[in-house]
Every structure is written in structure tokens, then in C-alpha cells.
């Protein structure tokens, strides 16, 4: 097992919109602390699931990993090489790809599909003897007919647009593809098509996937390992099957219990979790989850727990819970 992407002690801030004066003057600008102390290792060729509700910082994490946003602390290593090394950013761009939540919006609106999916070759100045043939091959790889190459993004259906974005992401045979909500907006009967396609590509080409989603059932089916993010901190990581079978962190447990169950016989009578995810602007002191936690004790309000390994391959950030 080799490490594909390592994050250690990573934190990230976002600039808060200030007035014109603060932008021009060289004083300290107001910033919002989004990610804190993220330590995570993605392995080569594995599908990793990142779960979090809106406001948990999961999209920011993807942006930081791709070098679209800076980290304020900690280290990022792609294929063993720190991103601060000279030329590392270019190799990161070459070896990673992103699939956005809204596939149509992530395609240049005035560019035909054929051109859009071969764009990575042009960007990295990789000679293509026949761009059209490559476009057709990429489309075939994701199960789309050649005629799609002549279309514009707005002429695609939701499922087709997903496939086109998958084709573009795979164009340069990346080692890591980050997929943000890969099934958002898709009907249940189409969801499976996209997830199956991704798992086939992983098996055939050894692509590593980082799937970011708030949809637990999607993550449960695709990811080998998962991490749960709450207010910018990892609260639990581990193999998917184990975490779902026995969640340690109370937040993970309530997330799993909150998922609506289609079986009326297993209808829930109680409520697994109350309250709302606090705003990042008012990050609770101590453990971030104590405001909603059923187990919260006095120490949780003052002392922030650290992420510790509690079982082989499983880590947890909680004072009280554990195996």
C-alpha cells in the first residue's frame, strides 16, 4: 500500500469579504478558519469517501488538495512529494482531476464536448495526432456515442453530462480523481450507472477516487474507507463497513441514524440528532460537536479532543466514545 496523497496537520482559512480599504491597506485581513488539523492519507487506487454536511468544509478541502486554495498550516504531499517543492504543483495538476457537483456548469458553455474533453492534452501540451479520434475514444470509455462530441454542454442530459465530465477527468490517466457529490441531481435509476462507471474505471485503470458527499448510501456503496468531517475537523475515519457497522463518534452515529429508511417497518420514532450545525463564524469552544452531542460532558466544552487511533485503521476525535 503506497500513499497517494497525504495531508498532515492541514488547516485552511478563507478570506472574509472586507471593505475596499482593508483590501488596499497592508493590515491583517479578516479570515474565516474553515479546516483545522486535517491528517489523512489516501492510498493508491482506493476509493475514499469524505462525508460532511453543508458547512463542514468538504468542498474547501477538495480545493485545498487541488491547490486551488492555499493551506494556512500543515503539509500536503502528492505521491510522496510536498506541494511546496518546485514544479510539484504542475505535477499535481497533471496527476489529479476534479469532477464538479454541477457537471454542466463545469464545462465551458461555448465549447463542444469533443474539444472540452481533450482540453487537458492541449493544456499540458501533449501532442495528439488526432484530437477527434481521442475524443471519440474517451467518450467510448464512459459509454457515450461519438455523436456527443459535437454537442454543447447545455444540450446534454444530467447523466450524459456526468459521463462527459468523467471522460475529461480521465483523459490524462490521473492517479487521483476528486468527485464532489457525483450523484447530485441524478435520478435513482441513473445514480447507479455513474457509480458503476466509476468503480469500473477504478478497477481497470487503478484510479484513486476521493468521493465527497453528504449522501451516506452513496458513500457506503462506493468507498473502501471513509472520513467524517464536522465543522472543518475530521471526527472519525476508518474502513467503511466497520464504521457503518459500529460508528464510534456520536456524530457519525447520528448521521447514520438520520438517513431516512425506505422500509416502513424500520420507521424511526425518535430523533437521532437535534439542533443545527453551528456557523463557522461561531465555532464552539472545546469539542465542536458538544452543542449537539448526547454524551457531552463538562470537559468537552473546554478541551478539544485530538484525533487518535482507537482500533487498527480507525481513528476518532472524542473524549468519551470508543470501542
Amino acid at each position: 500500500m503506497t500513499a497517494l496523497y497525504e495531508l498532515s496537520g492541514l488547516s485552511a482559512d478563507l478570506p472574509l469579504p472586507g471593505d475596499l480599504l482593508t483590501a488596499l491597506l497592508p493590515m491583517r485581513k479578516p479570515r474565516l478558519n474553515v479546516l483545522q488539523d486535517i491528517t489523512l492519507t489516501l492510498r493508491k487506487g482506493e476509493t475514499f469517501g469524505l462525508v460532511g454536511e453543508s458547512g463542514s468544509g468538504k468542498t474547501t478541502l477538495a480545493r485545498v488538495m487541488l491547490g486551488l486554495a492555499p493551506a494556512s498550516m500543515g503539509e500536503r504531499r502528492f505521491q510522496g512529494e510536498p506541494l511546496s517543492a518546485p514544479g510539484a504543483m504542475a505535477r499535481l495538476r497533471r496527476g489529479t482531476a476534479m469532477m464538479f457537483q454541477d457537471p454542466v456548469a463545469s464545462l465551458s458553455p461555448r465549447m463542444r464536448v469533443g474539444e472540452a474533453i481533450t482540453e487537458p492534452f492541449a493544456i499540458h501540451r501533449e501532442g495528439l495526432p488526432d484530437r477527434r479520434a481521442m475524443a471519440i475514444e474517451l467518450l467510448a470509455r464512459v459509454g457515450l456515442p461519438p455523436a456527443i462530441a459535437a454537442r454543447y454542454p447545455h444540450e446534454l442530459s444530467g447523466g450524459q453530462a456526468r459521463r462527459v465530465c468523467t471522460a475529461r477527468a480521465l483523459a490524462l490517466n490521473p492517479a487521483l480523481v476528486i468527485a464532489d457529490e457525483p450523484t447530485a441531481g441524478l435520478d435513482v435509476s441513473i445514480q447507479g450507472e455513474i457509480l458503476n462507471l466509476m468503480s469500473d474505471l477504478k478497477d481497470e485503470r487503478g484510479v484513486g477516487f476521493l468521493i465527497i458527499s453528504h449522501n451516506l448510501s452513496v458513500i457506503r456503496h462506493t468507498a473502501e474507507r471513509i472520513a467524517i468531517l464536522y465543522l472543518g475537523r475530521l471526527v472519525e475515519t476508518g474502513p467503511t463497513a466497520e464504521v457503518f457497522a459500529q460508528p464510534f463518534h456520536p456524530y457519525t452515529a447520528s448521521l447514520i441514524a438520520s438517513e431516512p429508511n425506505p422500509d416502513p417497518r424500520r420507521r424511526r420514532a425518535d430523533l437521532a440528532i437535534r439542533g443545527e450545525i453551528p456557523s463557522l463564524l461561531r465555532r464552539p469552544k472545546g469539542c465542536e460537536f458538544h452543542t449537539r452531542c448526547p454524551l457531552a460532558a463538562p470537559q468537552c466544552r473546554t478541551l478539544a479532543p485530538t484525533l487518535r487511533e482507537v482500533a487498527p485503521g480507525r481513528s476518532l476525535r472524542c473524549h468519551l466514545a470508543g470501542p
Binding site: 486551488l68 495538476r93 476534479m98 456548469a105 463545469s106 464545462l107 465551458s108 487537458p120 493544456i123
Partner: peptide
Amino acid sequence: FVQAERTMG
């Protein structure tokens, strides 16, 4: 789509 171009380098 502009962010996507940036991720592609």
C-alpha cells in the same frame, strides 16, 4: 468551468 480549467492546469 473556470475552476475546472484551473484544476487541469
